[in-house]
Nucleic acid binder design. Structure first.
Length: 450
DNA sequence: ATGTCC
């Protein structure tokens, strides 16, 4: 069955898929992005509707096919916890800070090279790398259980969540622990990055994209495997296949996975804040000014949320989707963001703009969520076939973005691999989900190797 | 995304 052909525009920058799926799905795309979407994406959207007590599904404009469900997918369940709709990089997300330093300093080749090198000295880069913040077991336990608070950050100030509570009875699994304990203050590889940028007022910013490294990956792997066994024993197989796993609340595994996600999220929050400290020191040293942490937020998570639009509490899974609470959202009560909504951090590709958005009241139509990036439009292998090293190096030089202090540009992360940020942001703004507060232009990008 | 196969 061709599901794409069953979608119909319902206005407000949204398509509705109602036929051929268990519950209606709202797909927030403009005509251009919808036209480009392939049927495989819609088959994965169908998978997202198949989980037992799923109540609502939303697709963001940067959506592309992922593991079982799309990257760019929001799923609200009554209680069921699903693995694929969180993904392997539990707690992966963004952090941004701004300064009063003029963009001219950032564009100075000598200064941006020095900044890049100072960052590379302080933060571990690449897959398989250990971190630059060694901790003992006691400190690691504290970080995993109390995230930002274990590092002394003031509550509700810097972060989407200071930490997600982890039950005392839950024990950190040995294997993920043995990997994670050495990986704090490390960036990882793939699409993770640290980027120097400037805003419309010509002030320097830094954005960071990273996650829970081997710690979250280890737990995701563990609970996806156990989910497969759990469903096999129950004789259940969803249309999405053996990998479309979940835990129902009557299982002890539900409790375990809930805590594993919380722990992964806490690790990721702490990792981003530790990177912020390292990058902040580099920034101060090179540019001579104290930057201000704007916000820190995840785009791969399941957490229990008050969902006013659905009239209750739900388990909101965001896989490659960013939380977008507008002003007055009940979950912002008591934070500094209650009157304005919290900042939404959206990166573009390494050659493209990034954006800081604030949610509009219309975000209630999208499960209080927007996109998390621009969406890949080319596989990594296709990129390596299509582009040469010298081409992408020249491309970034032309865009005036220094990569890894003058090193090679990772071909499969080059701008041609991603959709234009403008199209995706236009979809979000056009749908009335959020407005643009800052547009950030890249100056220097720091990336790990695969 | 990931000590990209314990």
């Amino acid at each position: 069955m061709n599901l794409k052909s069953l979608c119909r525009p319902i206005g407000g920058g949204c398509y509705l898929l109602e036929e051929g799926v268990r519950i209606p799905v709202r797909i927030f795309m403009n005509e251009t992005l919808f036209a480009e979407a392939e049927e495989a994406l819609f088959q994965q959207i169908k998978n997202a509707t198949e989980f037992p007590d799923v109540r609502d599904v939303v697709i963001t404009p940067d959506a592309h096919t992922g593991y079982v469900v799309p990257v760019g997918c929001v799923i609200a369940t009554e209680q069921t916890l699903c693995q694929a709709p969180v993904g392997y990089d539990i707690g992966c997300g963004m952090m941004a800070f701004r300064s009063d330093v003029d963009k001219g300093k950032g564009l100075d080749d000598r200064l941006r090279r020095r900044f890049s090198e100072e960052v590379m000295d302080r933060v571990a880069l690449g897959v398989g790398e250990g971190g630059k913040y060694p901790v003992d077991e006691k400190k690691f336990e504290e970080i995993v259980r109390f995230g930002a608070e274990a590092l002394g950050y003031e509550r509700g100030n810097a972060s989407e969540r200071d930490f997600i509570p982890v039950d005392d009875r839950w024990k950190i699994p040995a294997k993920p622990k043995s990997r994670g304990i050495h990986q704090l203050r490390s960036l990882g590889g793939g699409n993770h990055f640290i980027e120097l940028q400037y805003d419309q007022e010509e002030h320097l910013w830094v954005m960071v994209h990273t996650g829970s490294r081997g710690f979250g990956h280890g737990m995701a792997t563990e609970y996806i495997q156990r989910g497969k066994e759990y469903l096999r024993q129950k004789g259940i197989r969803l249309a999405g296949g053996a990998e479309a796993t979940y835990f129902s609340p009557d299982s002890p595994l539900w409790f375990e996975y809930k805590n594993a996600v919380a722990a992964g999220a806490n690790f990721a929050i702490a990792n981003r804040l530790l990177i912020w400290e390292g990058v902040g020191r580099a920034f101060r040293k090179v540019f001579g000014s104290e930057p201000e942490l704007v916000y820190e937020i995840s785009h791969n998570l399941v957490q229990e949320e008050e969902v006013p639009a659905l009239g209750g509490k739900f388990w909101v899974h965001r896989k490659g989707a960013t939380r977008a609470f507008p002003a007055g959202h009940p979950m912002l009560k008591g934070t500094r963001w209650y009157e304005t909504g919290h900042p939404i951090l959206i990166p573009g590709s390494m050659g493209d703009k990034s954006y800081i958005l604030y949610a509009e009241p219309g975000a209630e139509r999208s499960l209080y969520s927007v996109n998390h990036g621009c969406g890949r439009r080319m596989s990594r292998s296709a990129a390596k076939q299509q582009f040469t090293q010298s081409y992408v190096n020249r491309q970034m030089a032309t865009l005036n973005v220094m990569v890894n202090a003058g090193g090679n540009v990772p071909i499969d992360e080059s701008p041609g691999c991603y959709k234009p940020a403008e199209d995706v942001i236009a979809s979000v703004v056009g749908a009335g989900l959020a407005r643009v507060a800052y547009v950030l232009t890249p100056i220097a990008s720091i990336k790990g190797n695969d």
